[in-house]
Structure formats: C-alpha cells, structure tokens
Write a protein that binds this DNA or RNA. Structure first.
Lengths: 232, 232
DNA sequence: ATACATAGTGTTATATCAATACAATTTTTA
DNA sequence: TAAAAATTGTATTGATATAACACTATGTAT
C-alpha cells in the first residue's frame, strides 16, 4: 500500500472571492493583511482547510466568519499551485467565488490574519497580495460567463428588485460588452417567465415608481425541464 | 509570521483524464491499479505532485510518463477534496484533461501504481476506483462545453482530416445532442475560414475519397481578432 | 458496366436578434 | 396648481442566423 509519508505534503487553503452589488457597481470584499508577508496590503479572503473539512465547507466557513452569511451561491473556480506563489513555502489554494446580497452583509469580527475588511469596486481591486490579482481575474471572468448562462445574477440583488436594477447589474458585470437595450432586455427576461410580478412598486423615489419582481426558482426549474436554456 | 506547521497539510495529486478519438468513438485512458486500495480496479491516471513542480507541469508529467507525448492540449477542470475520498488518508486531487491524437500514442512503461493501461469507450468507463466516476463525469461535461466553444476538437484528430471525420467527432462527444446535419455543419465550419483545404484526398477507401483539411491556428487567431467567436 | 458507398452541394421557411421613439406616471419646483 | 424633471413602460420592423430538406458526383469492388 501507498504510504503517504513517502510523498511531499502541502499546506492547503481556500480563497473565497465575495462579490456584491451596490450603487450600480460590482464590488469585491478585500481584507487588509495584518502580518507578513504582504503586511498592510489588500488580499482576498481565505483560510487554511481544516483536516476534517471538505473544500466547499471550508469556503463556506471563510464566508461565514467574515460576513455571518451562509447558504449563498458558491462556486469553485480553479486551483492555483505555482511553487513560488507564497513566499513562505508551498501553499496550494482552491479559489471559489460567492455571490451575496450586500444589504444583508454585516461585518463580523475579522480573523487573525486580517485587520479590516472593505468593499472595493472590481475596477479598483488591483495590486493585491500574492497572486490574488490573477485569482480575482479568473473568478471575475468566470462570473461574467456564469451570469449569462445561469440565473445567478439574482443572488446579488435584494429579494425584490426592479427590472432596471436587474439590467444595471448585468451592465456592471458585462461591461464593456455593456449597452443593453431596455426594451430588448425586458422582452427577453420576461419571456422566460421565471420572474413574478409582486404587484408592488418602489417607494420613496422622485419619479414614477417601478414595479417590483422576484426570481422564482420553481418557475426556473420548469423552464429548464421544458428544454429551455437561460441566456442573456 | 505564519508558521505553516501550525496547520494541517495534505497529500495532493493530479489526475489527468486523457481523451482520444478512434473508430468513431470517444475514448478515455484508464489504468488497472496494481495495489491496494482498489487493487485490480480501473482508475484514472494520476500521480503525486512533486515538491518543486507546478500543477500543470505535474499533469503534463503524468501524460508523458504514460504516453510519451507532450505539448498537447491540457486544461484544469476542478479540484476534488472530500475528506473521505481516499481510504488511506486525506488526498486532495486536481483534475485535468488532455486531448491527444490517439494514433500518435505509444504505450510507455506504466508507473509503479499501475499494471496496464487501456483505452475504453467513454460509455463503458464506469465503476472506476475512488471518486473517479465523478471526476470523469466532470471532465467529460467540461469537454462537451469546451469543444463547442473553442476549436479544440482538432486536437483529437490526425493533422489531416476530412469534414466527415470532424463531424463524427462532434457527434461522438455531443450525443445525445447528436444528429448534426451534414450540409449545415459544413457550411458553418467552412464559413469560419479556419481550415485549409490541403488539395489532397483520402486513399485506400472503397468509395469516393474525401478532401483533406487541416486546422490553421493563424487563421483562427485572425478570426478571433476580427471579433468572431467559434461556436458549433 | 453496374452496383455500392460515401462525398459534396443550395434553397427556403422559421426563429432570433438588433435597432429604433414616444407616451405614461410620479415627484419636485416655480 | 401648472410646468418641469426623472424615469418607467411599451411594439414594430429589418437583418441575421438557424433548421429542415434530397439529389448528383466520384471513386472502388464485383
């Protein structure tokens, strides 16, 4: 039998890139590192994988420790394992991303590795520690694809949203493929019949209030069962 | 500073799912395990990642040790790290797939973990050791998507191929989405202008010989530069 | 010379996508 | 209280892409 002690082992982490949407802008949660290496630089949230913990569980734990949230959309993206990606020794990391409703987010105590957490616009999230620029780029690229092919964009919006808010979400993620035509967008999304009109309208806006909708998972499952494919 | 010894480490491996195409059938290379656990069962090729080896390098090494081939299409798919996926202890594995021209394949010495390697049709590749059924399924699903969105199918065919062979390749991979119309397929693939007509024909066939084509990477790059997207 | 096997080729109907402008509703301001 | 401002909500048409469909051409085998 194989004796694993004959083979090198490696430290293993997960990084969980947490996306949120606010003020018409796609944001990502970064933490300021509290120790060397890369002390005081911004980095993506992550942690070591515990011995008795599955990878998905570990990524969920990172999320929950940081935001208090659980049961959110989570997807594994890719594993980064360059020999020299970590200056202190070999660390292989499995990258995930999560989509959260930013309004439900409450900053919890940051963990021992971090000083403080902050939302930054995806455009400004550069010069991160380690190879985190590369990791973020891979996750963002995956998100762009995913959001067009699966109804996951709703995870970034409040439960009740307007069609204009939904359109702005797509524009923020997909730009510069941007410039979505309002009439065509509405026609397309409504034709799928995966949203329900809540017969409510916005309140407190200084213009004609828009109708509120919510995403209906059951309807989406029916849509799929009938052989249709979600695509924006 | 973080001392990695404070954290659990894990054995880690790469598994490289090697796809080939022969006799109108998509095949996958499996090896019979030469020791416990799962002795004498079929498994996907893989190996431990060496301490100074990047993940891609490691996957390429697995391929080369088994087939002698290098410089082939290789893609990371997903990392499998369930706590109990390996009966002997925790082993996290990064799954890759490779596409090879099966005619160029020469069986090299199998490594210490294996007795013999064999091509099996993707349909018959079940009841593999460990969680390899799941890994294969993930890789196959990825291949189905990849082959429709990127010109990688050519990697599975000889350098010179006929349009019918190419169509059969797509049918084998995409079935049951199968049933491709010959005229529409030809029109589509030729309209992209990424193939070159070699002005040669098949030899030794008992019917009208077909024209031979090859994939032209330069032309594909031009196609992309002009803003077009490959799609079958 | 004929049978056999597969290669090779166009047209039309249908569905999808892209582009376009203005009236309706609500709040704010003069 | 009338007008202005802001944004919602709605249909049509032309262009493009997709899907459906059958016969002739060219080589080998008998």
């Amino acid at each position: 039998m194989t004796n694993f002690d004959d083979y090198a082992k490696s430290a293993f982490t997960v990084d969980n890139i947490i996306f949120g949407f606010d003020e018409g802008d796609l944001k990502v949660l970064v933490i300021k590192r509290g120790e060397q290496p890369y002390e005081n630089q911004w980095a993506l949230p992550g942690n070591f994988v515990y011995p008795n913990e599955d990878l998905d569980t570990s990524a969920n734990r990172v999320l929950q420790e940081l935001t208090g949230l659980k049961d959110v959309y989570l997807e594994q993206v890719r594993t980064f394992g360059s020999v020299n990606r970590h200056p202190m020794g070999r660390v292989i990391t499995v990258a995930y991303f999560s989509l959260i409703k930013i309004k439900e987010y409450k900053l919890h105590g940051t963990d021992t590795l971090s000083q403080k957490a902050e939302w930054v616009s995806i455009k400004e999230a550069t010069n991160l520690a380690f190879d985190h620029d590369k990791i973020l780029e891979a996750c963002f690229r995956r998100l762009k694809r995913r959001v067009r092919m699966r109804p996951v964009g709703f995870q970034l919006l409040p439960r009740k949203f307007t069609l204009t808010e939904l359109q702005h979400l797509y524009e923020a993620i997909l730009e510069p493929t941007k410039v979505i035509d309002k009439r065509n967008f509405r026609k397309k999304i409504l034709s799928m019949k995966i949203l329900v009109d809540l017969n409510e309208t916005q309140e407190g806006v200084a213009h004609r209030p828009a109708k509120l909708y919510k995403f209906d998972k059951k309807k989406y499952e029916k849509f799929v069962a009938e052989g249709y494919i979600f695509e924006i």
